[in-house]
Design a protein around this nucleic acid. Structure first.
Length: 241
DNA sequence: AAGGTGCCCAACCGCGTCCTT
DNA sequence: AAAGGACGCGGTTGGGCACCT
């Protein structure tokens, strides 16, 4: 799904792929936040690229199992990430930014949202500012799907403590990541085994094409188990390029 | 098992504000 | 002071999933 936006080339839309996340994350870590329009503007001019190694551990109710390692080549930064600036900013702000808290709202957070909303109305960014790790989009969605109904039904019924409601935990990973890692389900009560891949660590290595940095063609990861040749056809790994 | 329905939430859109020139 | 671009915010949409019949 692509569309001509922002008066430039055709921009990709829809759900973000893990590779795109990786590229955006790499860009922001290298260049900092802001200049979102530059990400797509610089698209196509490969100047350097990152190698990112992610480790995941599989946690089940029977304990923690082996690691899944995924090797990702982030063709920098200047990557061919055909996304509009707005889309990149939103993705970073709502999902990729460090310290984003995922999972269900605690009773305290629910209570705070209700009280703040009573005070400020739909000023979601202000409300989110009082909830560390929560985004305005998340607070807004949460209000619209959970609290709005509850709040209106509370007007009809007797006022109650909001902490009494039993909310189920949300998954820890985004929809697309959960799908790509084959998450089975969270309904432990129904006999379905919890099977969640958790990102454990990420290592990245840079190769600068501009200045021909003297990084070796063969790199070893900390445990000396992986080898990488940057002359690789990395486009094989990035259908989006 | 298959189809219908409703819910959730990530992402998009439009508009207002801020900043730079 | 004006214009244009970048950014931020709130409203809305729609894809995918779970549940129901």
């Amino acid at each position: 799904m692509e569309q001509k936006t922002e008066g430039k080339s055709y921009m990709k839309r829809g759900l973000w792929k893990p590779e795109e996340d990786m590229i955006l994350k790499s860009y922001v870590e290298t260049h900092g936040e802001g200049n979102w329009a530059d990400i797509s503007r610089r698209s196509g001019s490969i100047r350097n690229f990152h190698i990112v190694l992610c480790s995941f551990t599989q946690k089940t109710e029977r304990g923690t199992f082996g690691k899944l390692r995924s090797l990702c080549f982030c063709v920098d930064v200047f990557s061919g990430l055909k996304r509009g600036g707005k889309s990149c900013r939103l993705r970073w702000k709502n999902y990729l930014r460090p310290n984003i808290k995922r999972g269900s709202m605690s009773p305290q957070e629910q209570d705070l949202i209700i009280r703040m909303h009573k005070l400020l109305g739909n000023r979601w960014s202000l409300i989110a500012g009082r909830l560390p790790g929560r985004t305005d989009n998340e607070v807004k969605n949460y209000w619209n799907t959970h609290l709005n109904k509850k709040s209106s039904s509370r007007k009809q019924n007797a006022p109650e403590s909001i902490g009494a409601t039993n909310f189920t935990d949300k998954p820890l990973m985004s929809t697309e990541v959960r799908r790509s890692h084959g998450e089975e389900g969270e309904r432990e009560g129904n006999g379905i085994v919890r099977n969640t891949w958790m990102e454990e660590e990420t290592n990245s290595f840079d190769y600068d094409v501009r200045i021909g940095s003297p990084l070796p063609l063969i790199s070893h990861y900390p445990d000396n188990t992986l080898v990488f040749d940057p002359c690789f056809a990395f486009t094989d790994f990035f259908p989006l390029l």
